[in-house]
């Protein structure tokens, strides 16, 4: 797992998503940020988020500062809309922000706006992503681009079309973040599986977020998420009776409550499969991380 140290730098966002949990968290005051920067050794990997961190006027200087002090990876979590200003995008990348995680909702403007409760222009978002993809780093590579696609009942029908739409931006990863409200569990999982197939067909890794292992079953694919932070849910979860017999119980927080409220909710705990020993072996290695 690449452990990113979280650095929340503001609270104002261009969106007002009802399911957002980050907005409630405290952000670093300038004094606290200063203290962080003055540590003798900074973490290697830092994720900057907000609100919308790109609206903070000192962001470029902050990135330059973090790099100067030894941060190797700076991931910016953004809506991408502010990147429509090419100068900002160019400055950020040239100062050392080479990893971007873009939250995306839908290629349909009406759905995008409904999910985000905002009048943010989808055109600006797409322009921002295009700007980012126009830039090459010194080594000839493009910045790392991950799309976090937020999925709930408002866009579950379009989830695969969203993926296909985003392929033209040559993403390095998709994250399918499942959030409430949902209507049907089976339908949701079917769409998630379709999305995984499409991403893999295009040789792109797709990881799910807020999806316990038991919901997607024994398929090994899902365990790649253990190497990321996405198996740590951002929603309240509880252990069920069946979790006691599940081989993933030590690394899983249980089942988020928004699944448990669904009419067709049911789980099949992961019980020793032919690869049970390998899973145990993997868990041991995970404990070191």
């Amino acid at each position: 797992m690449i452990r990113y140290h979280s650095l929340k730098i503001n609270n104002s966002c261009l969106n007002s998503c009802s399911f957002c949990s980050e907005i409630k968290q405290d952000f670093f005051s300038p004094e606290k940020l200063n203290d962080f920067l003055n540590q003798p050794k900074l973490p290697e990997s830092i994720k900057i988020f907000g609100g919308e961190p790109l609206t903070v006027d000192f962001l470029t200087d902050l990135v330059a500062n973090l790099r100067r002090k030894g941060a190797r990876r700076i991931m910016i979590k953004t809506t991408a809309a502010p990147l429509s200003d090419f100068n900002l995008t160019f400055n950020l990348v040239s100062k050392g922000a080479h990893h971007f995680e873009i939250e995306f909702f839908s290629f349909e403007p009406a759905i995008y706006q409904a999910m985000t409760n905002s009048d943010l222009s989808l055109e600006l978002v797409l322009q921002g992503i295009s700007n980012l993809r126009r830039l090459s780093l010194e080594n000839g590579q493009n910045p790392f681009l991950s799309f976090r696609i937020i999925v709930n009942s408002a866009n579950i029908n379009e989830v695969t079309r969203n993926l296909v739409f985003l392929l033209k931006f040559r993403p390095d990863r998709f994250v399918l973040s499942i959030v409430p409200p949902l209507e049907k569990l089976d339908f949701t999982l079917e769409k998630v599986r379709e999305a995984i197939k499409i991403a893999n067909l295009n040789l792109i890794w797709l990881q799910t977020e807020n999806v316990p292992f038991c919901l997607l079953g024994e398929d090994c694919y899902h365990y790649g998420e253990l190497l990321t932070s996405s198996f740590l849910f951002s929603f309240k979860a509880s252990k069920l009776k069946s979790c006691l017999e599940c081989s993933a119980s030590k690394v899983c927080q249980g089942v988020p409550s928004f699944y448990q409220e669904l009419e067709d909710f049911r789980v099949s705990p992961l019980i020793s499969s032919e690869k049970f020993e390998d899973f145990e072996f993997l868990k041991k290695e995970m404990e070191r991380l």
């Binding site: 797992m1 690449i2 290697e44 090994c220 694919y221 365990y223 790649g224 253990l226 190497l227 690869k275 390998d278 899973f279 072996f281 993997l282 041991k284 290695e285 995970m286 070191r288 991380l289």
Partner: peptide, 17 residues
């Protein structure tokens, strides 16, 4: 090796940074 064991190898190497 298999997918799980490959993940375990990756986890080990990641832990060394």
């Amino acid at each position: 090796d298999n997918f799980y064991r490959f993940l375990a190898s990756t986890a080990f190497v990641l832990s060394l940074a």
